[in-house]
């Protein structure tokens, strides 16, 4: 059988640049990281404490403007172990399994995803206590909260 002919395929690389305003609550959170602080906002109605902060509680339709400091320790509520990462659509095996926790920082009611280092995969479980580790030299970005380690 003749090899199936493939019709012409036009490859078009597009490189777009967008710029997004993060909003004042998130800016305040990022600036707080440089001082080693984790900031959240509390809902005046249902008392939930959200971090990273956002401006509105959708359940209560309230503005979130009561600032509180949360963490730096917290509890792992949910977790996964990543064996694969995606780089520009290509699945690649991680060199080491990556531990990712959904962490409830002390004083917060929301969960924050975070990388957990210094812990073996078999030690990771709901209820594990972890502590935020900040960059020694802050750069004014969300990456100033570098990872979590066992508390």
């Amino acid at each position: 059988m003749a090899k199936e002919r493939e019709i012409l395929n036009s490859v078009v690389p597009l490189d777009f640049t967008y710029n997004y305003r993060v909003g004042i609550p998130l800016e305040k959170y990022i600036l707080g990281l440089a001082e080693g602080k984790l900031l959240g906002v509390a809902c005046p109605s249902c008392k939930k404490v959200v971090t990273p902060p956002r401006s509105i509680c959708g359940i209560c339709n309230e503005k979130l403007d009561e600032w509180v400091e949360v963490g730096p320790e917290g509890t792992v509520e949910n977790w996964t172990i990543g064996h694969v990462r995606l780089e520009k659509g290509e699945a690649k095996d991680n060199d080491e399994p990556v531990l990712i926790g959904m962490i409830k920082l002390d004083g917060a009611t929301s969960l924050m995803p975070g990388l957990i280092e210094g812990m073996r995969p078999e030690e990771l479980a709901a209820g594990a206590r972890v502590r935020a580790v900040f960059k020694a030299e802050p750069e004014g970005s969300v990456r100033d909260l570098d990872h979590f380690e066992p508390a």
């Binding site: 993060v22 990022i30 996964t80 990543g82 064996h83 694969v84 990462r85 995606l86 780089e87 520009k88 699945a91 991680n94 990556v98 990712i100 995803p113 975070g114 990388l115 750069e139 004014g140 970005s141 969300v142 990456r143 100033d144």
Partner: peptide, 16 residues
């Protein structure tokens, strides 16, 4: 602002 979507900080990405 520093979130690396392809490296280890891209949490969803490192989770696959």
């Amino acid at each position: 602002l520093g979130l690396d979507m392809t490296g280890k900080q891209g949490m969803v990405f490192s989770g696959g």
